[in-house]
Design a protein around this nucleic acid. Structure first.
Lengths: 149, 149
DNA sequence: GTTTATGCAAATATTTTGCAACGTT
DNA sequence: AACGTTGCAAAATATTTGCATAAAC
């Protein structure tokens, strides 16, 4: 897993998009933090270590592009920042979801198998065809159960 | 159901907060649109019909207060606006979740019973104690399945 | 050489804040 | 009368856009 430059170049070329250092740098930066949920500003700081001339506008434009290509996922923790994380390389893998500690802000991922059943139930009941879902659970992590509550 | 002014006044007083026309107007406006997901700007427009002197800052401050009191819920549809909707009066009622049509933007609610099981499983696996959850499903509504796809 | 992408700065959009005036208790 | 709340305008924050320059094809 990790950063696969060759595959990325192939995707860009197949869409008629140009392969630039900036685009490679942004994807590489996100790939280097697979378990974090970075804001645009954090990605900017991270990319600037190796690519100091990059502008924040390019960060935003590249993030949007990577989302459209399905290489990264958008995550909203309702803290005023939109966050991004590197996606799963295996597209058939189950989506992961997020456990958010309301005390310390820690975010854990978890995989789910149960939601497929719920999706089917929803499709039957409402006529909606579900393509994707996002689940967030809020609570207290192991550490914060002792400190608080 | 609907807008219960007496109960609202009781809650405000019990917290040492003042009962103002603006606060009543905002809660009343949200109560009048129980199935909609309104932005701050939309709430502002709605409240100004009867309370034209209200300022947008008061809308934001009141929305935040109503969220803290648990009377309204925040909803993020990732369209650039934070939205609000009137909460359930019965606190023991199951949470509802949202089906979002990626074609026309329509938002449907649905109730769930299956997530309690998932919560328990998560608590066992991760040690997290879950207090709340939010689920969004993205797909195509019945109407849009014919037009598109 | 043509086209697309970048960097910068300015613009936009949403939400927050300071403060004097006002309304509620 | 005391204190919390409001309205206004200004500030802060996050993201987008126009445009000339630069890089990729």
């Amino acid at each position: 897993m990790g950063y696969n430059e060759e595959a990325f170049i192939k995707i860009l070329k197949s869409k008629g998009l140009k392969v630039t250092n900036q685009r490679k740098a942004v994807l590489k930066a996100l790939s280097s933090k697979p378990d974090q949920h970075l804001t645009a500003e954090e990605i900017y700081e991270l990319v600037r270590v190796d690519t100091p001339e990059i502008g924040i506008a390019t960060i935003y434009r590249t993030i949007q592009l990577l989302c459209e290509l399905g290489l990264i996922d958008k995550l909203n923790l309702d803290d005023g920042y939109v966050r991004y994380e590197i996606g799963k390389e295996d597209k058939n893998e189950h989506h992961h979801h997020h456990l958010i500690c309301v005390n310390c802000g820690k975010v854990l991922k978890f995989d789910d198998d149960l939601l497929d059943e719920l999706e089917k139930q929803v499709e039957k009941t409402t006529g909606f065809i579900v393509h994707d879902h996002e689940l967030k659970m809020y609570g207290y992590c192991r550490d914060c159960q002792n400190n608080r509550k």
